[in-house]
Every structure is written in structure tokens, then in C-alpha cells.
Design a protein around this nucleic acid. Structure first.
Lengths: 341, 341
DNA sequence: GTGAAAGCGCTAACAA
DNA sequence: TTGTTAGCGCTTTCAC
């Protein structure tokens, strides 16, 4: 690499016959600097191609103005949307962003968090991996008072903030809807119960059954990784038993879609024989035939709020002292669950 | 934030009665340091909770060991896969990664590149936004000899490297396949022709028509943003004309899937009335009914190669001096284009 | 309103 | 094999 030496504050100072400190102050619009001086500084900086050196600044200020994000996977519409919400806020507030993926693995999550910690991010935004067991890897952050905000897949921990939806209620509504459509033997395709999102949806499912006088049957519950492949395999297995389900409540759209495909291949009709409800309102829910009934929730807003709250915390600006923010969700009813009669 | 002062190299040195430089060298396994000394240093660093300060190091070394990635959007399976390929390599080689999205906007791309530049990344990986017109925003990088590697959506520029597939050939194969299935009036849903990927696919389409004695008809070509919405709107429009197409070659799966849905809603059959081929092999291609014929290409490998090549260039290790690397693709034939007779 | 000077933590040339 | 020393570029306290 060429070492075209960078223009520094000193170069600008020399060119203007000022001191470096004045230039530094002028550059960031410090009130004590004369207006004319500032103008001169800005002009010179621009014409000389001055670019501030963030390391020097971070080294000195002991903060990076960068926040780290750890998500399970990037390849869902939901996550991409959350992240654009985060970006909107961080851009506006002048923060940088480092995104990393745990690939749904608790082990990788540990390494992501550690890498971000080593990069000295000022704060972190996290949605937990599928199989993260404990929060020990966050202790280094807690010890240094680096703020952490969890979103979607959250965890209970003293002093942490969370941005979520009411997964219990959402699960309850989805299941109730199926029951109202006449379903009595509803399969639940659920995710790892370590994660709030899945345990709550499951709890909602059980409660809805209970409240409608339907006995809970553990045999109808399948906890899996919620991939398309798992969805298909489970339904295949189901059709080899005498379970004869008439409904499916899946904890994400991917597995719901897979279930529909498998149901149809087995010669049953959706929704007449088996009604299906998914979760997330991914675009694929409008590609599958019949279109998938699913739970929509405000991904972009989750991102925006999580980022805002985190930055407030970084700057100790938190006016209100909340620990959990719950956003609204809504059941989008489409053909996959709607029986005509 | 608590200011629990960090443990520095000096603290470790003092504790061990060594000099800071020895500790610095020991920490990075410098060959001139005695084995025993290194062991002591590592032990002490660990027990004292030493964490290296990257700014100080970057400031001094004038490099960040971080690379920047600018992609149009994160929410496709393709991009997420490319990025996991990139991550694999950067992790292995000890580089950090900053990911940012241009949201398909040339304007945003400029700001992403500028932000990454200001963060002093050692190199950049770029896939261009839909409507990027020129490469002026890369000039600052070129001037400072910061290496740039383009992938997928690439651009011609002296000294830049690219990782791509042969989009011309892929477009040619897709179109030829449709012709072999008996299609004579093939619609092309294409993207912005500023982008190599779309102009090349289009060129392949035209050449395939030509080579099979079918006259090219500009009326069958629709250049759009390739979203589901556009795909649907265009097909709607088509059905209001007397074009009567019997095939569709779409430059991505999203628009191909939208086209299928619209075709079916208009009362035509896929593939018998209209055969459809997409591009990218996104998971949705196996959800749509009939399953979508599409072009598969090695996303993960693209990411791995692009990252490897970039880091080689950063370190001036380039053994071979290539400017473009072309990877293999393959046409995945499924039901959406396969006519029985 | 402006300047002088110290130091953030690390690395590397040079010395021993 | 280890130590000394001089910055990397910036911010900020204190002085004027």
C-alpha cells in the first residue's frame, strides 16, 4: 500500500498558523472559537483533504461511537428489516455499526460477542442464538458497564433491557383462531424452549387449548429447529401415525410453509383438512398456495427502538427506567386457515 | 459508564518486571522472545484480564485489520450466504468485518463507502446498488491504494478485481432451455442494465433467440426493479395486450415467482401455457407451485474467494495477477419450465 | 478566543 | 534475547 501520508490536524494548523487545539475545537464547532476562525478551518480542512483519524480520537476519548449487533442469521426478511431500522437510527446519531452472525450457534455467539468486545464497541444489540444456554459470555460487558439491549430473542438479566412482542398472547391468538375455525387436534411446531419467543408461543398455545376445553396432548408438540427440512420431516412422521391432526400452529413461516407443502403432497387439503398458521409474516407467506395466515410484527420498529434505547443508555440519557418494551403484533388471516363454513 | 481502567501492556510489564516492548512482542508470539518469557507473559495477561487496545495498535500500525462490505440488501438468501463465506475467511485470517447496506440506492452507497473509508478499513468488498451510475465515490480509495474487490454486481475499472459468474452464458442457457421446451414468445423481466449482471443476462437472452432463429422483440422486454410487485404489475399489463407470451425468463427468483402467481391468477397454466425460469435459486423457488426452474450459483464460494483475494491484495501477496474470477453456475430444471410432451 | 503540553496504549527502530 | 525511546493523531486541562 502506498503510504500517502494522511493530512492531520497539525497540517491544517500549520497552514493556518493556528494551534492544533484550535483546529480540533473548530472542527467540532466548539462554542469558544471565533466564527471566522471556524470558517477558515473548515475551508482549509476541506481543501487539504483532511480526514479525521478515528483511532486517535477513540484512543483519546476512550469510546468508539460504534455499536455491535449479534443476530442469529441474516437471511430472513425479518432480521434484514430489523437491521435497517437499527441503521436508520445509528446513521442519524453518528454511530457506526458492526454486524455479526452467530449462525444460530451458542458457541459462535460467544465468539461474536468476544470479538465485538475486543473492538470496544460502546454497546451491543443482541438477539440470542437458538441454543445459547447461559449469559456468561456477557459478563465481561456487564463488568465494564457496556450496555446491552436484547431484542426478539431475549433473556432475563438484571439491568438489561429488552425489546419484544407479547409472544404468549400471539401464540394464544393464533391457536384460538384455529380453534374457532373448528380445529381440535392442533399440531405445534415449536422452537427451542430455551428461547423466550418459542416457550411463550408454546405457553400461549397450551393456554388457548385449555381455555377452549381442549385437552393438551404432548404428542402433538414437536420441538425442532424450525427449518423447512424439519417441518417436512415432522409432517411426514405425523402422517405415518394415527394422530390425524386438523390444524398446525408453527412458530415460524419457514416451517409452516414446509408443513403445507408436505400436507398437500400427502393428499390432504389446506385449510379444509388441516388449517395452518405461521409466524413472522415473511414474504414467502404470500407465495405459498393457499396464502399463509401468520403473525405480523413490526420488525423495523423493533430495530429503531432497540437502537435508540441503547444509545440513550450509552449516554446515560435514559429518562425512563424501563427494562422491557413490548410492541404490538397482529394476526394476519389468510387462506391457509380460513374455512368457508 | 464506569471507567474501570483497562489493563495495559505496561501493567503486565510492571507485574512481570519486563519492558512493555517485550510484553508486546511476547503477546504476538514474536520469534525473538524466550519461550519461558512468553509463557509468563501469556499467563499474566490472562490472569490480569489484559485486552489489547485496537485503536492504539491501529494508530501505530496505520492499518485496522478490518474490511468493509457494502451490499445492496441483506434480506436475500444469496447475500446472506455470500456473507457467511466472507466471514469464514475473515475470521480465519483475523480480520474484522463491517457490513453495510446501500438499500439498492446509489446515493446510500456513496455514504456507505465514505463511512467505511472514514473508519479506515484496509479494503472493501462491494456489490453495486441497482442504480449506481459511476465509480467516483471509489476514487478516494483508489488514490490511497485501498484495495477494492467487486463481486456479483461488478464494474470495470483499472486495477480492480471482480468475482462473478458468466451471466451472459447463464442467460443464454436459460433462454435456450425455454426455446427447447417450445417457447417462441419469451418475456424477459430484466433489471437495470447499468449492472453487468442484468445487461449480460439480457445479452444472453438475445443471443439465444438469435441462434435459434427467433426474432428479438423489444416489446417482450421489461426492465424493472425486479421486486415481486413489479413482476406482478408487468404481467398484469402483459395480459391486457395481445402479446400472448409462452415463456418468461426473469433475472431473479422474486420476480419469477410473482410472474407465476400472476399467470395463474389470470387463468393460465405454468408451464403448459407459459413456462417460467428464474435466477438465483432462492429457497422460495421450491415453495412456489410448480417449483421454479432457476440458475444456481455458488454464493458461499463467491464470498470466500472475494475475501481471500482482497486480503491477499491488502498484504501484497498476490501471486497471480488476475482481474476477474469467474465461477461456475448451473441451470436447475424444475417443473415451472418442463413440458411433458 | 487561543495556545502549550501531556498522554491515550501500542509498536518498531535502534541500542545493548 | 530484551530494553529504551519516540512517536502514531487526537483531545483536553490549564494557562494566558
Amino acid at each position: 500500500m502506498k503510504n500517502a501520508k494522511d493530512v492531520t490536524i497539525y497540517d491544517v494548523a500549520k497552514a493556518l498558523n493556528l494551534s492544533p487545539s484550535t483546529v480540533s475545537r473548530g472542527l467540532k464547532d466548539h462554542p469558544h472559537i471565533h466564527k471566522e476562525t471556524k470558517k477558515k478551518i473548515w475551508a482549509a480542512a476541506k481543501s487539504m483533504g483532511y480526514q479525521q483519524n478515528k483511532f486517535a480520537s477513540s484512543l483519546r476519548k476512550r469510546r468508539t461511537e460504534t455499536i455491535g449487533v449479534v443476530v442469529p442469521k441474516l437471511n430472513s426478511y425479518f432480521m434484514a428489516t430489523v437491521i435497517s431500522g437499527v441503521e436508520k437510527i445509528t446513521n442519524k446519531l453518528g454511530y457506526g455499526l458492526i454486524i455479526s452472525q452467530s449462525q444460530e450457534s451458542g458457541k459462535q455467539e460467544i465468539s461474536c460477542v468476544s470479538t465485538l468486545f475486543d473492538s470496544r464497541v460502546d454497546g451491543m444489540l443482541i438477539s440470542l442464538a437458538f441454543d445459547t444456554k447461559n449469559l456468561d459470555h456477557f459478563n465481561r460487558l456487564f463488568n465494564k458497564d457496556i450496555p446491552v439491549v436484547f431484542f426478539d430473542r431475549v433473556a432475563d438479566c438484571k439491568g438489561c433491557m429488552s425489546v419484544v412482542i407479547d409472544n404468549y398472547k400471539a401464540g394464544y391468538e393464533a391457536t384460538t383462531h384455529l380453534i374457532q375455525q373448528g380445529c381440535k387436534k392442533i399440531i405445534h411446531l415449536g422452537g427451542n424452549l430455551l428461547r423466550n419467543v418459542y416457550s411463550e408461543r408454546f405457553r400461549g398455545y397450551k393456554q388457548a387449548l385449555h381455555d377452549n376445553g381442549i385437552e393438551f396432548n404432548q404428542k402433538l408438540v414437536f420441538i425442532c429447529d424450525l427449518t423447512g427440512q424439519s417441518g417436512r420431516e415432522i409432517m411426514k412422521k405425523v402422517f405415518k401415525t394415527d394422530l390425524q391432526p386438523d390444524g398446525v400452529f408453527a412458530a415460524n413461516d419457514t416451517s409452516a410453509v414446509a408443513a403445507i407443502l408436505e400436507i398437500q403432497e400427502a393428499g390432504f387439503r389446506v385449510p379444509d383438512d388441516i388449517a395452518v398458521v405461521g409466524f413472522n409474516n415473511e414474504p414467502v407467506s404470500q407465495v405459498i398456495h393457499p396464502n399463509l395466515t401468520t403473525l405480523d410484527y413490526p420488525a423495523r420498529e423493533i430495530g429503531e427502538i432497540a437502537a435508540t434505547v441503547l444509545i440513550e443508555k450509552i449516554n446515560n440519557l435514559q429518562s425512563i427506567s424501563y427494562s422491557t418494551i413490548v410492541l404490538k403484533h397482529s394476526l394476519i388471516i389468510r387462506q391457509s386457515s380460513l374455512r368457508k363454513n
